[in-house]
Write a protein that binds this DNA or RNA. Structure first.
Length: 872
RNA sequence: GGGCGAGUAGCUCAGGGGCAGAGCAUCCGGCUUACAUCCGGAAGGCCAGAGGUUCGAAUCCUCUCUCGCCCA
């Protein structure tokens, strides 16, 4: 067998991928195995894999592979999201290159164009997920606009409407003048901008004027009142009087409202109910009229009088100039404030009064709060619980209608008099209308579509076929785990909980693992405009998917932000190469191993007992970490076990028997090596599925379908661990002395052991390994006190001399011993101070006291020996 | 304004009441028949600062500073 000495993921991964493609990861809800399920956070159908996806999906795949190997019917439901506004904006930009708008095409042609786009790009993200190694049940791939899922959306809408939880109303919403649609509160990003505060004089009807400060003077065209705080003594006299709106001349009552902040501006607030949330609230309470002055595209409408038709910021300038000319502009001061921007196109949004559909959230939020308080859903890390609860406790109604074309069209039809008929389809609406009017009438469907997140909220059960009562729902709902970033905690997670509880009376998932977002090397958010985006596909091309996955596992434990670091990728690639070479070594050195043999019942070497013992500990802790979703700790544990323990020690020690004369001993070593390799590839498989599957092929194993190792307690062997501990210390000590004395590392030296409780083992069973790893010829001279041309050494309680080839620099040895002594004395002083403290003996657990005493004893003995060496 | 996270070796970060860790970088030495993407050795830290709790604090509590984020 000839295997390349470097692991080449570019050659291996496509091959393994096509193997997986043949069999797939199809789940059987009726297998009778214990189910375990995850639904994917559906990526945008036209999207391309970014680092966030890489992290998110790697973690899901680690869990799903682990559970699958651990005997569960583990089903990962994949799918894509139509991503209403995001996709539509994308296609509109494409159209803009041709100098067209969606309105030029009309609704049907535009939609055809988006579908075309979807057909063209919709599969790339799926292929990319596969390339990352994701073992989704691809036979269950769903898309939020599929007929089945669209039916789920209509079903949910109709039911919520009939329950009074969806209503249509004129309300102040966030409006994006570029997208020309309403946005939910969550789709607005607040950003600090440097603007201006304009101080405008409003003449009073009975003489004089009052000054009002505003950041958006153009909205004054929609003013219908002025307001002051009732407790503000400065302005009390104004209440009940009337001001005159500049430019338009409208009479504005001056009212009192608690909401007015006396500290802001002059303490007099202009009330523009159609364009400001606070003003809207005040106006609603006091019954003030609202005047909308903005068109859908952000230009001033006819209510704006002379400014009608002007773009909003041009209107602002024109208006300010006019005011200045009339002496009504008192001053302009710089002002920093938070302004809302459209999440998608980054245009400044306008609060705008319009007729929209809303979901009444309070009744839905209450159960969603309860299940988390009762622990039916658990957040990991736990601190997200509070964030979730606080949002739900202060929730506001959700504006779900969007003036877009790409999405689920709202299943509402209007009669000639505007009467609303909400139904599953037009036929049903017609029946309702007929029943209502007693005759056939012309119905027209609502033009709007639903917020993308409406369908996403149903995702955990719509992918399983709801509203049908499917086998999938019976078996896999509720799902076990949701893996997602905190950025969509409110958008998605909270809404899924609400909808899951409402429609299935059961939580959609039991645990939510919240992972960080990936940021660039300097800690900056990755974005196209910053130009700091790292493309995971390029990383896969350079390092392989496994290396990327391991890197993702390593950063998964970060708090909010995980810094991308190319060094980490290098490190992971090196590790994979290490695993590959470990496998290569074991495979080539066990090629002659007859099948069917087992190390059990054979006489094991100390190192065999040691590595088997360590293996059990590693299996136990990796499983434990995986159960806690501590992916970084699991990965790190395996990294160090493989590299430090298996490769650096066990493999090197096993070489003595592999290359030795004793055929039986050689067999044993081969068998234990095989066991170690088999276990390691299985343990690693969820993290690095390609490499481990590839190695498995050489072992005639299908690792991806294998069992996750379970610890076997009886193989824990504290005695072997102690023995190997001393062995390692001795080897390290000899190596260190050699290095510090500047001796040729290859030259074999005589090692004379003079005392130590493990001496007979070191010179007996472990002699060959000692000779090989320390490059020495060991011999036994009990009690010997002195030796010419030799360096004294100490490892644990083993004292020894290292015979030197000639005249040596003794000061180097003495300073080494002195350094050791200093360290020992420092540690000892600490321990003794602790032991001398009566509080410690009284209050510390007995175990700790005993352990400390033993350590102190050991250090004292060591100190004595070192002192003797220095003297001698 | 409210809340959250981070601050540990030169760099990137683990750890989270009982002896301060890793990788990279640095320095010294090695192509030793799995791997130079490697092996061996070394050096490097007042665990941001100040108080407190405790027999014992990098770890828990309070405050402060710096950076980042979320919500309003």
């Amino acid at each position: 067998m000839s295997l390349p000495s470097r692991y080449n993921p570019n050659e291996v991964e496509p091959r393994i991928l096509s193997r997986w493609e043949e069999t797939g990861w199809v789940c059987n809800p009726k297998s009778g195995k214990k189910p375990f399920s995850i639904v994917i956070p559906p990526p945008n159908v036209t999207g391309s894999l970014h680092m966030g996806h890489a992290l998110n999906n790697t973690l899901q795949d680690i869990v799903i592979r682990y559970k699958r190997m651990d005997g569960y019917e583990a089903c990962w439901f994949p799918g894509t999201d139509h991503a209403g506004i995001a996709t539509q904006v994308l296609v509109e930009m494409e159209l803009a290159k041709e100098g067209k708008t969606r309105k030029d095409l009309g609704r049907d042609a535009f939609l055809a164009r988006v579908w075309q786009w979807k057909e063209k790009y919709g599969n790339t993200i799926v292929e990319q997920l596969k390339a990352l190694g994701c073992s989704c049940d691809w036979s269950r791939l769903r898309f939020t606009l599929d007929p089945g899922l669209s039916r789920a959306v209509r079903t949910a809408f109709v039911q919520l409407y009939r329950e009074g939880l969806i209503y249509r109303d004129e309300y102040l919403i966030n409006w994006c003048p570029r997208c020309e649609t309403a946005l939910s509160d969550l789709e607005v990003e607040h950003e600090e901008v440097s603007g201006h505060l304009y101080f405008v004089r409003y003449p009073l009807e009975d003489g004089g004027y009052v000054t009002v400060a505003t950041t958006r003077p153009e909205t004054m065209l929609g003013d219908t009142a002025l307001a002051v705080n009732p407790h503000d003594g400065r302005h009390k006299h104004l209440i009940g009087r009337r001001a005159i709106l500049p430019v338009l001349g409208r009479k504005l009552p001056i009212v009192a409202a608690e909401e007015v902040d006396p500290e802001f501006g002059t303490g007099v607030l202009k009330i523009t109910p159609a364009h400001d949330p606070v003003d809207f609230q005040i106006a609603q309470r006091l019954g003030l009229p609202a005047v909308n002055v903005l068109n859908e595209d952000g230009t001033i409408n006819t209510n704006g009088g002379p400014f009608a038709g002007l773009e909003r910021f041009q209107a602002r300038e024109a208006l300010v100039e006019g005011l200045r000319a009339e002496g009504l502009l008192e001053k302009i001061t710089p002002y920093k404030h938070a302004v809302g921007h459209c999440e998608r196109c980054h245009t400044m949004v306008e609060p705008r009064l319009s007729l929209q559909w809303f979901v009444r959230m309070k009744p839905l939020a209450e159960p969603a709060i309860r299940v988390v308080q009762e622990g039916k859903i658990r957040f990991i890390p736990e601190r997200w619980t509070k964030v979730y609860l606080e949002w739900l406790e202060n929730i506001r109604d959700w504006c779900i209608s969007r003036q877009l074309w790409w999405g689920h069209r709202i299943p509402a039809w209007y009669g000639p008099d505007g009467k609303i008929f909400v139904a599953m389809d037009e036929e049903e609406a017609r029946k309702l209308a007929h029943a209502h009017y007693g005759e056939e009438v012309v119905l027209c469907q609502d033009e709007d579509v639903l917020d993308t997140w409406f369908s996403s909220a149903l995702w955990p059960f719509s992918v399983m076929g709801w509203p049908e009562e499917t086998e999938e729902l019976r078996t896999f709902y509720p799902t076990d785990l949701l893996v997602t970033g905190f950025d969509i905690l409110f958008f998605w997670v909270a809404r899924m909980v609400m909808m899951g509880l409402h429609f299935l009376n059961e939580v959609p998932f039991r645990e939510v693992f919240i992972h960080p977002v990936i940021v660039d090397e300097r800690g900056q958010k990755m974005s196209k405009s910053r130009g700091n985006v790292v493309d995971p596909l390029e990383l896969i091309a350079t390092y392989g998917a496994d290396a990327l996955r391991l890197a993702m596992a390593h950063v998964s434990g970060k708090g909010r932000a995980a810094r991308y670091s190319p060094v980490l990728l290098d490190e992971m690639r090196d590790f994979l190469n290490k695993v590959w070479n470990m496998a290569r070594f074991i495979l080539t050195n066990t090629a002659d191993l007859p099948p069917g043999l087992n190390w059990r019942g054979r006489s094991l070497a100390w190192e065999d007992r040691w590595i088997l013992s360590r293996l059990q500990a590693v299996i136990a802790s990796v499983r434990n970490y995986l159960e806690r979703y501590a992916f970084h700790l699991a990965a790190e544990t395996l990294y160090h076990f493989v590299w430090d323990e298996v490769c650096d020690w066990y493999l090197e020690m096993a070489k003595v028997r592999l290359y030795g004369e004793d055929a039986e001993a050689r067999r044993t070593a081969q068998l234990v090596l095989r066991t170690a390799l088999t276990h390691v590839v299985h343990l690693l498989h969820p993290f690095t599925p390609f490499l481990t599957e590839e190695i498995g092929e050489h072992l005639d194993l299908r690792v991806s379908r294998g069992s996750y190792p379970k610890p076997e307690e009886y193989l824990r062997d504290p005695e072997a661990e102690r023995v190997l501990g001393v062995f390692q210390e001795l080897v390290r000590e000899v190596r260190a002395m050699r290095a510090e004395l500047g001796l040729d590392p290859a030259e074999e030296l005589e090692l004379v052991v003079t005392s130590g409780s493990q001496a007979s083992l070191l010179l007996g069973d472990l002699r060959g390994a000692l000779a090989r790893l320390a490059r020495v010829q060991p011999c036994w001279a009990p009690g010997r006190e002195n030796m010419e041309n030799a360096a004294r050494g100490l490892a644990g309680d083993v004292t020894f001399f290292l015979r030197l080839p000639g005249e040596m620099d003794w000061s180097a040895i003495r300073s080494r011993i002195q350094r050791n002594l200093n360290k020992v004395e420092g540690e000892l002083a600490g321990l003794e101070a602790r032991l001398a403290n009566p509080g410690f003996r009284e209050k510390a657990p007995e175990e700790v006291v005993k352990q400390t005493e033993a350590q102190a004893r050991e250090l004292r003995a060591r100190r004595t020996r070192l002192l003797r060496f220095l003297a001698g």
